[in-house]
């Protein structure tokens, strides 16, 4: 009985130490995604989307299922069609088939006016691990147009990820 408790305690300690192992950061390039809103687009709220698989930017041998910590360091937006009316607000969201869609950040009108398209990021980002581990991801950009635009509109998002995996 004495040995039984000792053995159980030892197993528990090993499990706890194994579970608390350090996650290790991995280096990836900035991911550039081109979202498209299919025109014609009318004044008001419109949406541009693109589906992607984060696996494509991970180093060889690393699988997205190994991700343990995910944060977005920055998102930089840029408008592809420069003649299109400039939207006065942007909201950036991420979704995947088996998770809930979440807001990742937004752009204020004041930033847009000074041509600063760096997204203000959400503090809460814990949901990102589950989204990136899913079979595919969807980037959604909602934007508010101040005029009509009789063509498609493309917005490029350059996402700088901070990723950690457990070996």
């Amino acid at each position: 009985m004495k040995y039984f408790f000792k053995t159980n305690l030892l197993v528990l300690v090993v499990i706890v130490f194994w579970g608390c192992g350090e996650s290790e950061p991995i280096q990836t390039d900035v991911q550039k995604l081109e979202t498209i809103a299919v025109g014609p687009l009318f004044e008001g709220v419109n949406t541009a989307t693109v589906e992607f698989d984060v696996q494509k930017i991970l180093p060889t041998g690393v699988k997205k299922e190994q991700l343990t910590e995910v944060r977005i360091k920055s998102i930089q937006l840029s408008l592809v069609n420069t003649e299109a009316p400039t939207p006065n607000s942007f909201t950036v969201l991420l979704a995947s088939p088996n998770t809930s869609m979440k807001e990742c950040g937004f752009l204020k009108e004041e930033s847009i006016k000074i041509n600063n398209y760096k997204v203000s990021l959400a503090e809460e980002q814990e949901f990102l691990v589950e989204i990136l581990q899913d079979k595919m991801q969807t980037l959604v950009i909602d934007f508010n147009l101040e005029g009509d635009w009789y063509d498609d509109l493309s917005i490029t998002a350059a996402i700088d990820w901070e990723l950690k995996i457990k070996n």
Partner: peptide, 17 residues
């Protein structure tokens, strides 16, 4: 989420998934 209080209500996704 304090950091999202300035997101425009026009365009906000209130129905999801």
């Amino acid at each position: 989420d304090e950091s999202l209080k300035d997101v425009a209500l026009k365009g906000f996704r209130m129905l999801k998934d």
